[in-house]
Amino acid sequence: MSAELTRDDVAKVARLARLTLSDAELDLFTEQLRGILDHAEDIAALNLEGVEATAHPFGLTNVVRADEVRQSLSRDEVLAAAPDAREGRFAVPRILGEAP
């Protein structure tokens, strides 16, 4: 399956991940990711029909907290690390489209 991983696939994934790759990086990553996925063929090829997926090693359930207000950060602390803050808000360059 991973032999099918193409340079276009890698370019598409880079867009999804918001990374710009140079042509050289595209080539390198395509080759390296293929290598890793080839190694992963050992599990991709397994028949695990009926085996449950484990997202968590221990079966904790219903971990909740009481609906009680806790101290928030001060606005200065919130904005302290902001690359650009204006009018008490985080400023960003224009947004191209609405949220999906």
Partner: peptide, 19 residues
């Protein structure tokens, strides 16, 4: 545990989790 409050001053009901 930040307050769920409409209309407060911007970025005042914020903690490491919701930021």
């Amino acid at each position: 545990g930040c307050a769920n409050m409409f209309g407060d001053e911007p970025n005042t009901n914020i903690c490491p989790v919701c930021l």
